[in-house]
């Protein structure tokens, strides 16, 4: 019960959740097709994580929290999928399981990815950055953004795809470089 949890528990939970929220969000985003779904699942997951935090063994290392949080988030994604079973773009069970297992490994390094992305965004042209802002920061649908800026949706889809690919290459290079530097 949450009222039985101490103020210290609350602080520890907040510290851990804040630290790993990005990893968890990336994990959920890897399994769901829309941002709305990701927001819903993140909200539900945070509540469940807090409710069950007393069951979590706090004597281990912080990264244990992430593994535990991935497990709970996976369960919440499954629940969300069941609620939205008729939606388009829902992966079938077997593909979902493959993605879920592999996403855990990838999303462990999300903090490094986010730092690399921060640097990679600086390398974009201003126009590309403006597109990124419109699509990701404002949370608008690409189709709506295209209408606002007077471009065809197809054209903007292609531009966003090129930017996404460029950022992914840049992030990958930076992560590999920093990994080599550590080895």
């Amino acid at each position: 019960m949450e009222e039985e949890q101490s103020a210290t528990d609350h602080e520890v939970f907040l510290r851990l959740f804040t630290r790993f929220e990005g990893n968890l969000r990336a994990y959920v985003a890897s399994l769901l097709p829309t941002r709305d779904g990701v927001d819903d699942v993140m909200q539900e997951s945070s509540v469940v994580l807090w409710r069950k935090f007393s069951d979590f063994d706090q004597t281990g290392v912080d990264s244990d929290f992430l593994g535990w949080a991935f497990m709970i988030a996976r369960y919440e994604v499954l629940k969300y999928r069941r609620r939205r079973a008729t939606d388009r773009l829902q992966f079938s069970e077997d593909v979902f399981e493959l993605l879920a297992s592999e996403a855990e490994r990838t999303c462990t390094t999300q903090i490094e990815r986010q730092l690399a992305l921060h640097e990679c965004l600086k390398e974009l042209e201003s126009k590309q950055l403006a597109i990124v802002k419109a699509v990701y920061e404002d949370g608008s649908r690409i189709k709506d953004v295209a209408e606002q800026i007077g471009r065809s949706p197809t054209g903007l889809y292609k531009s966003v795809a090129r930017i996404r690919e460029r950022l992914a290459n840049c992030v990958r290079t930076r992560l590999n470089t920093s990994a080599e530097g550590l080895s």
Binding site: S30, C107, L117, K122, K133
Partner: peptide, 29 residues
Amino acid sequence: RQLLIEYRSIESAMPSALASGTMEKAQAS
């Protein structure tokens, strides 16, 4: 699968990466 996870991870990090310092450049655009 790895590429899909990579793309989605990057997209999920985008709002916070944008908020942490690239605003001036975007506004300047």
